Simulated scan of single mutants.
Amino acid sequence: MASEITYAEVKFKNESNSSHSYSESPSAPRKKRIHHLSKPVSPSLPFTSLMVLLLLLAITFLVAFIIYFQKYSQLLEEKKSIKDITHNKLNCRKNVSSMEDKVWSCCPMDWKAFGSHCYFISTNRASWNESEANCSQMGAHLVVIHSQKQEDFITGILDKAAAYFIGLSDPGHRQWQWIDQMPYNESATFWHKGEPNNDNEKCVIINHPKNTGWGWNDIHCSDEQKSVCQMKKVYL
């Protein structure tokens, strides 16, 4: 009896140890797997720095592209202005004070230079709208006058026996407007005395009546007169 009890106790201990070791053995790998899966959750500093660097490069590229596009557009405009007058020869003068890197200011041949503009006297008689269309075909518009010096220069190259359309008209209610959308300044106008005098006369000429001198007069837009065209100088 005593030996059987001892054997039973020994057997019981062996089963207990075996059961304990079996229950613990699977837990070790499970802890390792849990620890292994949770490791990538923390953010990577090199990856964040790389994203910031790429973002800065993208912004720099965008700014450089915008600057390049603006320069390219300006170059296209300059080429277009030259292309518009390739059928004419250019008369150029060297500037005393150069405009940036451009040292030559040019007007088409047979145009008159004054200030930053060129002027062409059209001897063809046409309505105001037709006169403006003719100027537009040459890359210009009907003349816009804003100063006494400009008025004196223009009248100095005109024929006193003729009348010339300028780029001033009335779209309605005597609200005079310049063709280039520049503000109409009543303090810098050169109307003949008593002009404008007719609400139905919505276009303006510059003329020289006898014993009066040069000045502006409103007339019907359908009347046919000569005209003065104006364009900006071409800088090379």
Rank of each mutant, 00 (worst) to 15 (best):
S3E: 15
S3T: 15
E4S: 14
K13I: 15
N14E: 12
E15R: 13
A28Q: 13
R30N: 12
R30I: 15
K31M: 14
I34T: 14
L37C: 11
S38C: 14
P40E: 01
V41M: 10
V41F: 13
P46L: 09
F47W: 08
T48N: 10
S49F: 03
M51P: 00
V52H: 02
V52Q: 10
L53I: 05
L54S: 12
L56E: 11
A58N: 10
A58C: 12
I59W: 08
F61H: 12
A64P: 04
I66M: 07
I67P: 04
I67H: 11
Y68D: 11
Y72P: 01
Y72D: 11
Y72F: 15
S73I: 13
Q74E: 14
L75I: 02
L75P: 00
S81N: 14
I82Q: 11
I82S: 07
K83I: 09
I85D: 06
N88I: 10
L90I: 08
N91Q: 07
R93M: 00
K94V: 14
K94A: 00
N95K: 07
N95E: 10
N95Q: 10
V96R: 11
S98W: 14
M99H: 05
M99D: 07
K102V: 04
K102Y: 09
P108A: 09
D110Q: 01
F114S: 06
G115C: 01
S116M: 09
H117R: 13
Y119W: 01
Y119E: 00
F120Q: 00
F120P: 00
F120G: 00
I121R: 02
T123P: 02
T123H: 00
T123D: 11
N124Q: 07
N124I: 09
A126F: 01
A126M: 00
W128S: 11
N129V: 15
M138W: 04
G139Y: 11
A140C: 09
A140Q: 02
V143E: 02
V144P: 02
I145M: 06
I145S: 04
I145E: 03
H146D: 10
F153I: 05
T155S: 01
G156W: 12
I157W: 02
K160Y: 08
A161D: 13
A162G: 00
A162R: 03
A162V: 01
A163K: 06
L168C: 05
S169F: 10
S169Q: 08
D170C: 06
G172M: 08
R174Y: 03
W176Y: 13
W178R: 06
E186D: 10
A188E: 13
T189I: 13
F190S: 07
W191R: 04
H192F: 03
H192E: 01
K193R: 07
P196I: 08
P196Y: 05
N197H: 12
N198G: 08
D199W: 07
K202H: 06
V204R: 10
N211E: 09
T212V: 00
T212F: 07
G213I: 00
W214T: 04
W214R: 02
G215A: 02
D218R: 06
I219D: 03
D223I: 10
D223E: 14
Q225Y: 14
V228M: 03
